[in-house]
Write a protein that binds this DNA or RNA. Structure first.
Lengths: 122, 122
DNA sequence: GCCATTGTATGAAAATATGCATACATTGAG
DNA sequence: CTCAATGTATGCATATTTTCATACAATGGC
């Protein structure tokens, strides 16, 4: 997985870049549920960033139910996605995504189409 | 143009968000070469951010040859701006969104449907 | 039990981002 | 020339981000 990570000096905080890239890898299916991901120390060394910075990224991913950390063992992709009030969650997520897309100048129709295509490949 | 700008509290520096969104608007064709864009003060007031922050975003865009600032006059899109790939932007955004949705346990099909509904109400 | 591995925690320092206030410099309209 | 509009610049305060150093805690293999 380490070879798929790249930290850029573009003003975006390192922990944000790392968090988004892990999410992207999961989305592409390169990281499957239950899979082990590199230790925080490995990531820190490989990307030449601080352990605390990795910790922050991992912590946020765990807070979002994406990762599960096990002390002394390692960190893994969460097996079952967090089950919550699915409808409310979906609506909130959709609105947030719509706002982000609008900010990027991306038409919602095109985004919806792209997501449908991605869903088809699952 | 101001109505197409949206600053979020997602850890990404404000000046980065602003810079990227201006680039997105150009790539989308909503800002054409030679067109005048809002003054830095207008942006600062409209988005409720600091003048210095706008200045930084505009400065980087000028450094990249995207904008041309004229003291006492205004700021304009450079006549021959570097091309921006709208498709790539959409794909990247879609993948990122898909990853986030997956991490939240949201089926892409449902998200796509929800976004389509939101698009219809525009 | 020992111990290497891995995650967790803390405190300090430096760099960066943001807001706030203020002032200066240039341009064009009148 | 006068003046409003606009970009440019500076200093200070605060919060955030990152690095550095160091230590603690739990797990599993031996």
């Amino acid at each position: 997985m380490l070879e798929n990570l790249l930290i850029q000096d573009n003003g975006v905080p390192i922990y944000v870049q790392l968090r988004e890239q892990v999410l992207a890898l999961i989305g592409r299916g390169l990281l499957k549920p239950g899979a082990r991901i590199p230790t925080m120390r490995q990531v820190a060394v490989a990307l030449k960033i601080d352990l605390n910075t990795v910790q922050r990224a991992y912590a946020e991913l765990e807070r979002d139910g994406v990762l599960t950390k096990q002390r002394g063992v390692g960190t893994f992709i969460t097996e079952a996605p967090p089950p919550r009030n699915a409808k409310k969650l979906l609506q909130e997520f959709a609105h947030r995504t719509a706002a982000q897309a609008k900010g990027q100048g991306i038409p919602l129709e095109e985004l919806a189409a792209a997501l449908t295509r991605l869903a088809g490949r699952a």
